[in-house]
């Protein structure tokens, strides 16, 4: 029997995990950051589509923890640990955080991409997870896909095609 490659989708401001085989993907990353955590030995992977840098600015009643870098990363790590991943083996990769539009003289809102990247890096350092690859910045959108069996992250963009890391 042929095993069908399963695709786990991660929406905007969402996070999910996948085990053993299949791919986990998120589409249309602009200023958002797609962050993956992976345990190569156990072959479990998690992905978060982070939209905003910090939950300090949240004005919502029910906090969506997947939306903010400072809350999504610990939540994602927690999910992986529950599946048996070892904190010492987990490595992270990330992509996105671009600046699609550049305006002169507008405040921090438009710099949201770089801020998302910075915030993710800070949180990773706090959680002691090494960032082994990143493709961030620029002014274009990305779709990313992590193959759980290999740990390779595929990054697709309109202008530059597919890149792997």
């Amino acid at each position: 029997m042929i095993e069908e490659q399963s695709i786990v989708k991660v929406g905007m401001a969402d996070l999910n995990v996948v085990q053993r085989s299949g791919v986990i993907r998120t589409v249309g990353l602009g200023s958002c950051v797609g962050l993956t955590m992976y345990d190569p030995q156990l072959k479990v992977a998690g992905m978060a589509h982070v939209m905003l840098p910090s939950s300090d600015i949240a004005r919502e009643g029910q906090l969506n923890i997947a939306k903010y870098a400072d809350t999504a990363l610990p939540a994602l790590l927690d999910k992986l640990l529950k599946l048996g991943a070892s904190p010492s083996r987990i490595v992270a990769k990330m992509a996105g955080g671009s600046q699609m539009f550049v305006f002169v003289g507008t405040g921090d809102t438009m710099r949201i991409g770089p801020r998302n990247v910075e915030s993710c890096k800070l949180k990773l350092a706090e959680l002691h997870i090494p960032l082994i690859a990143e493709d961030t910045g620029g002014n274009y959108g990305r779709t990313i896909e992590l193959d759980v069996s290999t740990g390779i992250l595929y990054i697709r963009s309109v202008q530059t095609g597919v890149k792997e890391m």
């Binding site: 602009g30 200023s31 939306k67 949201i112 274009y140 309109v158």
Partner: peptide, 18 residues
Amino acid sequence: DMAGAILSYGLLQFGQMG
């Protein structure tokens, strides 16, 4: 570019609320 990447810019303000 990809619609998702572009439109997410218009959602940042709403993103803080829901």
